[in-house]
Design a binder for these strands. Structure first.
Lengths: 141, 141
DNA sequence: TCCTTACCGTTGTACTATACAACTGAATGT
DNA sequence: ACATTCAGTTGTATAGTACAACGGTAAGGA
């Protein structure tokens, strides 16, 4: 341990990137019924209690056309519904459907179980600090 | 802070996943000349001082056909060369070319600068601990 | 009020990344 | 020797993504 500053930053870069590159395959193995892409969009819609396509694009750094198509897919699958915003007719407020909520719950259960297992031998303090670091890192965009 | 165990695990899952979903776009902005995919493969080849396609597939959880095509692209770009393994004629040992090393250096410089800036106000201790957590997490696959 | 500008979303198009299956060729182990 | 396992390629299909052009709605002046 006790690495230099630069070395730590390089490690953080390398490990975060490696994780990112494995995320798709990991998700596919964990929950084949909902791809990582669908999962993340649905999860954000749910967590926000309804959000716009533009919000999704901003949150995940995606083009709005990409989000438009992904949302269309989710709608076709019956997982998401669009509600008109009475205050602004340009906006569609996205909400999970009943089926969407169920799919999300099941997927999150798989993911939660996998993470729980993988982090089983971590102390509560380490988990808490790791979570805080991640929030701090992601928050500094 | 002082969240419960389950809450911390959920946070870790959520934040890591959000990072993963943003990684592609972030990389494209940071270094348009080398996509995240090319970068990661080249970086691993370089870090290992020569490795096989199979090793790349295992490290990033990719199908060997995917790696085969990516390596072909890197070779066509003149960034990677294949050397026969004298001990096993099935194996091609991959190495960065001179141009590959240069491209990697330049890309890593961009990335390093971005991460340095983003982590500028972190204490050395926090960086060290965050790096250690990431290694521990990724190592527990 | 009208016009310009900004914003939200869709569609056309093209390309990249990926997986799975079938295959070739080379090593390994009965 | 023969079956099996291993490394890599190729055919094929699909998902995810960006960019550009567009239509419709809202907002802010002149």
């Amino acid at each position: 341990m006790a690495a230099g500053r630069d070395e730590s930053v390089d490690t953080i870069q390398r490990e975060l990137t490696a994780f990112a590159r494995r995320a798709r395959a990991t998700a596919a193995r964990l929950h084949p019924e909902l791809s990582l892409v669908s999962y993340t969009l649905l999860a954000h819609i749910d967590a926000q209690q309804g959000c716009r396509a533009t919000d999704l694009a901003a949150h995940y750094l995606l083009d709005k056309s990409t989000v438009s198509r992904q949302v269309a897919t989710l709608e076709k699958l019956g997982l998401v519904e669009r509600r008109p915003d009475p205050a602004d007719h340009r906006v569609q407020v996205l909400h999970p459907t009943e089926a969407g909520t169920r799919a999300l719950s099941s997927t999150q259960a798989s993911r939660r179980a996998a993470y729980q297992e993988r982090l089983a031998d971590w102390s509560t303090e380490d988990l808490d600090r790791f979570a805080a670091y991640l929030i701090r890192y992601n928050g500094s965009a």
